[in-house]
Design a protein around this nucleic acid. Structure first.
Length: 573
DNA sequence: GCCGTTTTCGGCCCGACTGTTTTCAGTCG
């Protein structure tokens, strides 16, 4: 059984947690965390790279020692060094650090002095008042621990981007009404367009001594004020979302926006560039000695450090800084580049709007074409179409195209991939379509080899053009199914097929990492909304964000092509 | 443990807020 990248990364993260509790060299701890991050954001499987004899120490943050450890993990599934550490320090202690306010030092003190090894131990000690007696702890810390223990269940899940975006928009509206406020900007992972966000980071510029902090904590959605200072405060909203607000003067806006957008790893890497150039970089600007030499705009900050402007979606320290230094950053795809949508549904199956309503809505968005991809018969919950139903739908589209100006409706279907890899509709009807989108809707839990073979067989059908939502994940609901995406991408490229980046906020499937993998392999991606209503056509922006996180440029995206060029791409090799 | 427009050894990002302190450690982002 191959060891997945995520599992390898988790071993190193766990090792880092426990070493931190043991007060090991913090830079060594960071080295393990960096390695974990590199592995987790790698497209190709590490196990595969090892099997192919590749030298892993070429990867950023991975040297000889960690490369060797990875090889052992791939071979045995275990990291011997982790077992050694766990013999001294119980593995469960790492979980205790999930409690807000408990870091490695305090967890160590709790373990050493009170033998606390679990949430249950922690709750018992806190309730009996033992924690307040420890050095460095007090009554407030004890109360805080109890409070967070109570809330722990269910509160740790990250929120989907779309949901967080709504909550942020309402809060930004509120903040704009504060007297003395100039700019209000959402930063953090929301600005980086990550598929889920852990908390909201909001940056405000305002005159000194403005009342904006008070205005913030008095927002009626606030249920708790975690901390409140002159320039920074943290609150919890009714939704459970934590919000950090930072107030800076306008002269620091760019530097603060960089700092608050992150990611943390990106910030560290940028500041290291600063150190190498004899500057200090912080949220107030770039400083040479005491003199501020940049800070008003993000562009200034990067330029002063010899870097091209880096789009927020790329700021993950995944190689973007090196490219920015060389002036070779990709020009990321934008919403304006999109010429049409290649996956949507109508009320003929499980969509809410009629064919004509969907067509008109697509035209209003400036699209040149819209592929209507109602379900095939096997997807009974969606009232999927059989051959006769689809033939009737095709004729309806022909009639609509004949009288509709300004947009072309492409005849298509989202054809179910059956368990054995055959498609749910016969070739005799598939050949009547402009394009065929195929997807897995049942039997998610096949073993990796079977699932991969199943999909490869579907791609073998000469009518198949696009594989929709290739991993099947539903964020916070269903894990991706076990499948060898590298093999599927290779096969898709060879056959002249494409993979979809499904823009539904709950899917965002392909992931950013897999988009980048597709790009590196020279495989184009279709960014599609899978809209089930006219309004959902606007989900395209989530797909664009994810594509940009995967470094996709317009040329890497199928539906940035005009109709005639698109038709050429849909002729399989 | 990683890494190199100063380096193969000696560095490794930077600041705000809190609680328990009487000048700072711990945590967080």
């Amino acid at each position: 059984m191959p060891v997945h990248n995520a599992e390898i990364a988790a071993l190193f993260d766990r090792l880092a947690d426990l070493l931190e509790i043991e007060d090991a060299n913090p830079f060594r701890v960071r080295a393990y965390r960096n390695a974990a991050r590199t592995i987790a954001s790698l497209g190709p499987s590490v196990a595969g790279l090892v099997a192919a004899g590749r030298d892993l120490s070429e990867l950023p943050g991975i040297g000889e020692a960690i490369a060797e450890k990875i090889a052992i993990i791939v071979k045995t599934g275990r990291l011997p060094q982790l077992a050694e550490v766990e013999a001294r320090t119980p593995s469960a202690l790492a979980y205790l650090m999930q409690i807000d306010g408990l870091g490695p030092k305090r967890v160590k003190a709790l373990y050493r002095q009170l033998d606390i090894r679990s949430f249950e131990d922690l709750a018992r000690a806190a309730r009996s008042g033992k924690i307040r007696e420890l050095d460095g702890f007090g009554a407030k810390t004890e109360a805080m621990i109890l409070q967070h223990l109570d809330r722990r269940l269910g509160a740790t899940q990250r929120m989907r981007l779309a949901e967080a975006e709504d909550i942020a928009a309402a809060l930004v509206d509120h903040l704009r009404k504060a007297p003395g406020v100039k700019d209000v900007s959402v930063a953090g992972s929301l600005r980086r367009r990550k598929d889920t966000v852990g908390d909201l980071d909001i940056l405000v510029t305002a005159a000194r001594h403005s009342r904006v902090m008070r205005h913030f904590v008095e927002y009626d959605e606030v249920t708790e004020i975690v901390s409140q200072g002159d320039t920074r405060s943290t609150v919890v909203l009714r939704s459970g979302l934590h919000v950090d607000l930072r107030v800076v003067p306008q002269v620091s806006f760019g530097a603060a926006l960089c700092y608050f957008t992150g990611s943390k790893a990106h910030n560290i890497a940028v500041r290291r560039i600063g150190v190498a150039k004899g500057c200090k970089v912080n949220e107030y600007g770039v400083f040479k000695g005491a003199k501020r030499i940049a800070g008003r705009t993000e562009r200034d900050v990067y330029a002063t450090l010899g870097l091209d402007y880096i789009e927020p979606e790329m700021r993950e320290d995944r190689g973007e800084i090196e490219l920015a230094a060389k002036g070779r950053l990709p020009k990321l795809v934008t919403l304006d580049d999109i010429r049409g949508d290649l996956h949507c549904h109508t009320d003929l199956t499980d969509g809410r709007n009629t064919l004509e309503e969907m067509a008109t809505a697509a035209r209003e968005r400036g699209y040149e074409y819209l592929a209507v991809t109602d379900h095939s018969k096997h997807v009974t919950v969606a009232h999927g179409l059989d051959k006769a139903g689809l033939m009737a739908a095709i004729r309806r589209i022909d009639r609509l195209n004949a009288r509709l100006d300004g947009i072309t409706i492409l005849k298509s279907a989202e054809v179910d991939i059956l368990e054995d890899g055959r498609l749910d509709l016969p070739d005799s009807v598939l050949r009547e379509l402009d394009l065929v989108v195929c997807a897995v809707h049942y039997k998610f839990n096949l073993p990796e080899k079977k699932q991969t073979t199943r999909i490869l067989r579907a791609l073998d059908n000469r009518h198949c053009n696009i594989l929709a939502h290739p991993s099947g994940r539903l964020i916070n609901v269903r894990e991706p199914y076990e499948v060898d995406l590298q093999a599927i991408m290779t096969a898709a490229r060879e056959r002249g097929c494409f993979l979809e980046l499904n823009a539904q906020p709950a899917r965002l499937d392909l992931t950013d990492v897999h988009c980048r993998m597709a790009k590196d392999m020279g495989l184009k991606v279709a960014i599609s909304t899978d809209a089930h209503s006219t309004g959902q056509l606007d989900y395209m922006r989530f797909g664009i964000g994810q594509a940009r996180r995967g470094w996709l440029e317009a040329r890497d995206v199928l539906n940035t092509r005009g109709l005639s060029e698109l038709r050429k791409f849909l002729k399989r090799v």
